[in-house]
Amino acid sequence: MRRRGPVFEKANGWIRFCELVMFPLTRILGRRSFEGMEHVAVPGPVLAVANHISQLDPIYTAVYLRQSGRIPHIMAKASLFKIPVIGRTLTGTGMIPVERGGGHGQIGLNAAIASLNAGHMVLIYPDGTVTRDPDNWPMKPRPGVAAMAMAGDFPVVPVVHWGTQDVYVPYVKGGFHPFPRKDIRVVAGPPVDLSAFRGKPVDARLLRDVSYVIQGAVRDLLAQVRGVPAPVEFYDQKKADRLKARAEAAENPDR
């Protein structure tokens, strides 16, 4: 396996096993193209922030970041850690479980910040799930990404995927279409400039503003990769659900 960049973190047995499986898999599932790797192939803590358009994204992101020489510590749903074999693999490779609801999300956030403080690379999907945007743009971000970004003065690097949504179509039964093989691009951009926010009191408003700046960088990089203009506003799932409910109520006033 060819390593790129000036940094190479030594892998344990679990990571080497995943490399043997996942590196060839990303080539089988599509014609992959990895670009901008110099932005993540740097020493010390790095927060990688990616868009999420398919359940295949974590596989491609992990391989991309690993090929840069870094070992990615990916924030993943805690429920995955309870699945036999998969859970043990996630733990062995240093993934970070994130609980949802009940105030437990802070535990995963603290673990991610501790990982960054230890000099690791952490990957987060600010959407929190595969995007529901009809055109596959990033959604309104969760504030956790900003809390992590403001926990230290380290690079916050946008990473985007495009093409994985054509191989595994999210939320569609029978949506796995590996053939004919598709082009899959993973691209990293330059670190997000957060200098205007450094040194300011961290409150809810600052976290909101920082999260929008970070997600905006992801959206704009994706627009470059896609070659189309980016939307002005982020898709808001809660807002969309409310509008849908109102429309259904208007169409069925007697229900």
Rank of each mutant, 00 (worst) to 15 (best):
F234D: 12
Y125A: 11
R198A: 09
I113G: 06
G69P: 12
K238A: 15
P180K: 05
H177F: 03
L56Q: 03
A240K: 07
S195P: 02
R32K: 09
L116C: 12
A149N: 09
H73I: 00
L90D: 09
E99Q: 15
E19T: 05
G119P: 07
M1T: 13
A112T: 13
Q67V: 03
R66M: 15
Q165Y: 05
N117Y: 05
S115M: 12
R3F: 14
G87M: 05
P229E: 02
R181I: 11
A112R: 12
S115W: 03
L123R: 04
F8L: 14
Q237R: 13
P24H: 00
Y168L: 10
D254A: 05
V192D: 08
V85E: 08
V167T: 02
P72T: 04
R3G: 10
E35Y: 02
G30R: 04
S79W: 00
N252K: 02
P134Y: 01
G119H: 06
H104A: 15
D183T: 11
A149V: 12
R219P: 13
Q106E: 15
F23R: 13
Y125Q: 11
H73E: 02
I107M: 12
G30A: 07
I184E: 01
T131P: 07
I124E: 11
V159I: 14
L29K: 05
S115C: 14
A111H: 03
E233M: 03
M95L: 01
V85R: 04
E9L: 07
V157P: 12
D236L: 05
F179T: 10
V160C: 00
Q55T: 00
V225T: 10
G94V: 01
Q106G: 14
L207V: 07
A147Y: 04
A151S: 15
V167P: 00
A149R: 08
P201Q: 03
R208H: 12
A204D: 11
N51W: 04
G103K: 10
R255K: 08
R2D: 14
I71H: 04
A146Q: 13
G87Q: 04
P170V: 00
Q106H: 14
Q237K: 12
F154M: 08
M121N: 02
P229L: 00
N252D: 04
A11D: 06
P190C: 10
E251Q: 08
A147N: 09
A48M: 09
Y168K: 01
G101Y: 04
V192S: 06
D153W: 03
P72S: 02
H39S: 11
A114G: 08
M22D: 09
R226Y: 04
R226K: 14
E248R: 08
T61Y: 12
F197W: 08
T89F: 11
G36H: 13
D203K: 03
A196V: 05
R66T: 15
P229V: 03
P158Q: 09
I53D: 01
P6R: 07
Q67I: 03
